[in-house]
Amino acid sequence: MRIRELEKSQLALTNRGQLSIFALGTGSAFSKRLNQNNVLIVKGKDHVMVDFGTKAPQALHQLGVASTDIRCFLITHSHADHIGGLEEVMLMGRYVARSKPKIIITSEYEKLLWDFSLKGGASFNEIHDGHTLGFSDLWDVVRPTWLAGYPRETFEVQTGSINIKMIRTNHYPEQAESWETSYYSVGLLIDDRVLFTGDTKYDPALLADFQKRFKIETIFHDVQFFPQGVHAFLEDLGKLPRATRKKMHLMHYSDNFEQYTERVKELGFAGFVRQGCYYDFE
């Protein structure tokens, strides 16, 4: 893997064919210095935007890209730092670009995302034959396929040249003891080589099970600097096997992350994910 800084002011949505993950943001939900933990997967002519928080439209604009330029989205869960920019995507798509972006989403999560988060700001903009807008009026829906025989609920989608497996995680509420009792949230396995946990509590089984099944080269993992709560505590992650820590880049961190740089090195992690950089996998 090679870390590459953005060479031009404009973010490219295509490349020469390698798998690239661009960190549009790396910050936690309430960061003021950083963008939110949203990433763009690019491979050849294909791209997938993973999460689109409240800061994402502005972050893209600063890189010369409009929200309507993004043609495929995948959302890991419904906190505002991951979905807060979707209303702009829907309304700009329908009334400005006049086209529907793709969204990779299970039927279960579509209902949750629409009914509890997106419907109020989008559904009531039009009435046709007594009906307001529905999810499919605003999105081109792509359904992933459920995979049998996995240690936890896992779905798969092939979008162009990019393969993504969507893996259920234990993020919230704090009281949930497993992914099965957690509200909907997923991490991603990208091209069977890069594990992106999304937001998750400390979950050694997630890492162990999928490293046994796949040759994972790099792990992008959620982190926080205090115990309990709904994210993975740094000191808990420090209990993982050294080989796992060595390939783990920490993301979704708070504004005071520099205070923990030395501790991250002491624990043997690869480091913090760098906002505004590509992570290239040849």
Rank of each mutant, 00 (worst) to 15 (best):
R4H: 13
L6I: 15
Q10W: 02
A12W: 02
L13E: 10
L13H: 12
T14H: 14
N15P: 04
I21R: 00
A23F: 01
G25H: 06
T26D: 00
S28V: 05
S28W: 07
F30Y: 13
V39Q: 01
V39I: 15
K43Y: 06
G44I: 05
K45N: 15
V48H: 04
V48A: 08
G53M: 11
T54G: 02
A56R: 01
T76Y: 00
H77K: 10
A80E: 15
H82Y: 07
I83N: 07
I83R: 07
G84S: 14
E87S: 14
M90S: 14
A97H: 07
E108W: 01
E110R: 14
K111S: 10
K111E: 13
L112Q: 07
L112E: 12
L112M: 08
G121I: 03
H128R: 11
H128F: 15
D129I: 14
T145R: 15
W146Y: 12
Y150Q: 13
R152C: 09
T159F: 11
G160N: 05
S161V: 03
I164M: 03
Y172L: 10
E177D: 13
Y183P: 00
L189P: 02
L189S: 05
R193F: 04
V194R: 00
A205K: 05
A208S: 11
A208E: 11
K212S: 09
R213T: 12
Q224A: 07
F226V: 03
P227T: 10
Q228T: 06
A232S: 15
P241Q: 08
A243C: 07
H249Q: 05
F257V: 01
Q259D: 14
V264N: 02
G271V: 03
V273Y: 04
Q275M: 08
G276Y: 10
